[in-house]
């Protein structure tokens, strides 16, 4: 029994395939999904998304907030990750993100700009993901 996983953003389908487990970062804490999970709708925070592919390896990605939707039909579970933006680990340009983060931190000193804060959080999530490998 596997999960059918689709990671989509408004601009593209980031990844889709069969998986055995999905771990995502919800606003109220991490959620792990195995096959046969009850139907679920979670609001996702900016953070990592881990998918264990059928051969046992983990696929990592970063999600800039969104929703995770689990639907079960006739015994097969489907997981849809609806992200505003998402990148696979392999797609992240770490040096560029690091530079951008430094730039943001130096300009946003103490500023309460919501957009800058979000961008910093997004950059940090990407770097955290690349460090964890």
């Amino acid at each position: 029994m596997t999960l059918e996983v689709h990671v989509v953003t408004p601009e593209r389908e980031v990844w889709s395939g069969q998986a055995t487990e999905v771990i995502a970062h919800g606003v109220d804490g991490d959620v792990g999904i195995l096959s046969g999970h009850a139907p679920l709708l979670v609001h996702l925070a900016v953070g990592p998304l881990q998918i264990q592919v059928e051969d046992g390896t983990w696929l990592k990605a970063v999600v800039d907030g969104g929703f995770l939707h689990v639907s079960t039909e006739e015994g097969s579970s489907r997981v849809d990750v609806l992200a505003t933006n998402a990148q696979l680990e392999t797609e992240i340009d770490v040096p560029a993100v690091t530079r951008r983060l430094e730039e943001l931190r130096s300009t946003a000193d103490g500023a309460d700009d919501e957009r800058v804060k979000t961008e910093i959080a997004r950059a940090e999530a990407r770097i955290a993901l690349s460090d964890s490998r």
Binding site: P10, D28, L40, L41, T84
Partner: peptide, 24 residues
Amino acid sequence: HAEYLFEPEPDEILDHLLPQYVVT
């Protein structure tokens, strides 16, 4: 589904889901 789960509460999810729907 009786066992349908929401995290956080449905109202809070809706607060984010509906604006996202408009943006889409």
